[in-house]
């Protein structure tokens, strides 16, 4: 193994980890506000990627411009989903039934995508698709850098929103203790809806970033949901920084293992990490009191 190859996969691992971190943050938001394991997250990711691809094919503009309408659209869908569907479920069986409900939404999205755009593999052709940056002997595709930049910017934005604003405070209070949040005058239903919307907005951004440099097809979301689920369990359900750190660590691990093992076997790394975490530390490595019960 040469040094530049190692460096290259380290950099690619960080770039991939950034995207994972953004998406895992979304999953953590859903779980935090509603105790919902959102299986449809990656289906929305692929939906956003398809919207970006469709936007570029129809208008010829840069796919990143599609964010201008996909982010508000997904935010709205998220709020509506929480208000109209998730909140209808009985609290006693919420965790299990919400999994099934979001699973059925994932199937619906996959089916509709297959119906509308067929199962053909799609890819956006961009003038800068083939461009590379040389970095101490490692060559990094520009689109991957852009995708990472998008993810990092949105994560930073999300962090500031959660830590610095009144809404972020209310959201974190709702995640920590719903009743107590209600007692201090927070409209937890509305906050939970917005939390859901924010989570889905991360899928919109992640999907656009994904569309920049990968081939997309309707059933691709199954390849994403497994790693994402593993990340939130390893990080500890409900912990945003935990999810981000786990995403980075696992993304790096996958990227490094690809050299000796190849792409397919490297993916099993996520699942091994998942099983190891549940055996050694079932609440995850950064999860607190919240994770222990789920």
């Amino acid at each position: 193994m040469t040094g530049s190859l190692l460096l290259q996969s380290l950099v690619l691992g960080v770039l991939l980890g950034g995207l994972y971190a953004l998406l895992a943050a979304g999953l953590t938001l859903y779980f935090g506000v509603m105790r919902v394991v959102m299986i449809a997250h990656s289906a929305f990711l692929i939906l956003a990627a398809y919207l970006a691809w469709f936007f570029t094919r129809q208008t010829g503009l840069d796919p990143m411009l599609s964010l201008l309408f996909t982010v508000p659209l997904f935010f709205g869908i998220g709020v509506l989903m929480q208000r109209l569907l998730i909140s209808r479920l009985r609290p006693a069986t919420l965790t299990m039934m919400s999994v099934l409900l979001t699973f059925s939404i994932a199937l619906l999205i996959e089916g509709v995508l297959g119906f509308a755009f067929t199962g053909t593999h799609r890819r956006i052709r961009l003038p800068y698709s083939g461009a590379h940056l040389e970095f101490f002997g490692a060559s990094i595709a520009v689109v991957k850098l852009i995708a990472f930049g998008l993810a990092a910017l949105s994560l930073a934005g999300l962090y500031i929103l959660l830590k610095r604003t009144r809404f972020g405070q209310a959201l974190r209070a709702t995640m920590q203790h719903r009743e107590a949040a209600q007692l201090v005058g927070i409209n937890t239903d509305r906050v939970a809806g917005f939390g859901f919307g924010l989570g889905l907005a991360t899928a919109a951004i992640g999907g656009t970033a994904l569309a920049l440099d990968s081939t997309i097809y309707p059933s691709l979301h199954w390849h994403w949901i497994g790693p994402l689920m593993a990340i939130i369990v390893v990080g500890g359900l409900g912990s945003v920084p935990g999810a981000a750190i786990a995403a980075m660590a696992l993304g790096l691990g996958q990227s490094l293992l690809q050299i000796p093992l190849g792409t397919t076997w490297a993916q099993t790394f996520f699942y091994l990490a998942l099983f190891a975490t549940l055996m050694l530390r079932p609440q995850g490595f950064f999860g607190g009191r919240l994770a222990q019960r789920f």
């Binding site: 779980f31 105790r35 394991v37 299986i39 965790t95 299990m96 999994v99 199954w222 949901i225 497994g226 689920m229 593993a230 939130i232 369990v233 359900l237 397919t264 076997w265 993916q267 099993t268 996520f270 699942y271 998942l274 099983f275 549940l278 055996m279 079932p282 609440q283 994770a291 222990q292 019960r293 789920f294």
Partner: peptide
Amino acid sequence: IASLRVRGASFVIVSIALVLILLLV
């Protein structure tokens, strides 16, 4: 043992992950 030590959510996640890992293998 891995999936039932904690409640619901992890169980579902492991059940999905197991299918995906077996498909890969």
